[in-house]
Design a protein around this nucleic acid. Structure first.
Lengths: 193, 193
DNA sequence: GCACGAAAATGCATAGTGTGCAATATTTGC
DNA sequence: GCAAATATTGCACACTATGCATTTTCGTGC
């Protein structure tokens, strides 16, 4: 267990920086936040901040949670249609966000109020898109597998939309939002015919 | 015509900065390029550089050409299916790029070789997506108009893919690439059913 | 032509960013 | 406890980006 503990500590530190960054952004607005202030609140040196994140935007945005391995396995082996099986994948993903609903809500608010976060957000989404692309590729026929990346973009875009409406609305249930996303995708299929 | 001349001059200066930035990026790689060097090569002061662009990435990426007004009008009034009429829109857009094919090719190469340009590129694409969203909204039924933004994302993503393969391949014709884009979109419609 | 005013370019000062490097501190396996 | 690996930190430094005051340029009306 050499790495396991250190790894956990690193994750913990990254999280503390992330939370400090988000709080400061909420209090002062993105422009007024400095890496210095973030480091100070997180209880680390400025230099250490840059060991964890390349800039303040990245610290605020952090990374979206990965798709859970188990859900990915079920999806790749899944027996339903693509969209049906996607439902399980999305639920597994959303559950992780739901677990930190408070931070999630805060982040969505920051994103809405600070346009300067968009680029960093999209950068972090690229990772998710790449992941999803690989997952989708396992389910696509040889004649449609070149669509994997564009399909991944579509789904992640839909997820973003779903998150926006879900996380800002207290009364919205998880499955409600997901079914809305899937309905949108199905409808998109019709429009593109 | 007080502004017209000045406006043209501004556009010209912006273009000179843009070209200088691209050349330097090609010669030295993104990391080694400084705003100072760009300004110097463009024959302006560093301070003036920041009157035109917020950072070096933006100068290299510049902005994609807008959809030509006339083509937009034809599209919104168009009598064919969505995808059929989109063809005209894409052709009008690609023609503008074709007019500066050399710079376009250079830019695609820079984008491929310098991952640090991705964020700035996507930022510039957001403008195009917003534009396209508004255009598409004019053609969508009330029951599908909430799909305008996701549809715009899909199309722009397809355009990006088309550009990548088109602009890097000497022998590829404009309409060939566009038809490939449209075929992809149609196929995507099937996959999403 | 010429003077006026708007727009653009510039110089300067300054706060903030991000990285390399070397020194120090901490943790881990033994 | 000790040695190796890993993490944190301080420092120096080059670069980024902006506000502000000044100068330059240029189109306009006389």
């Amino acid at each position: 267990m050499e790495t396991a503990l250190r790894e956990r500590r690193r994750v913990q530190t990254a999280r503390e920086i992330h939370v400090a960054a988000m709080e400061l952004c909420q209090e002062l607005g993105l422009e007024a936040v400095t890496t210095e202030a973030i480091s100070s609140r997180a209880g680390i040196s400025l230099r250490t901040f840059f060991n964890y994140f390349p800039n303040k935007e990245a610290a605020i945005v952090n990374r979206p949670p990965e798709f859970p391995r188990e859900a990915v396995r079920v999806f790749t082996e899944g027996g339903g249609t693509l969209l049906e099986d996607m439902r399980g994948l999305l639920i597994a993903q959303f559950i992780q966000i739901d677990a930190n609903r408070k931070l999630g809500r805060l982040f969505q608010a920051l994103l809405r109020d600070n346009p300067g976060l968009q680029s960093a957000h999209e950068a972090s989404m690229r990772g998710l898109i790449a992941e999803l692309k690989a997952i989708l590729a396992t389910r696509l026929d040889p004649d449609t597998d070149h669509l994997a990346d564009i399909l991944a973009v579509v789904v992640v875009c839909a997820i973003k939309k779903g998150l926006e409406s879900w996380i800002l609305d207290e009364d919205r249930s998880l499955s409600e939002s997901i079914d809305e996303i899937l309905a949108d995708l199905k409808q998109l299929g019709l429009v593109l015919r």
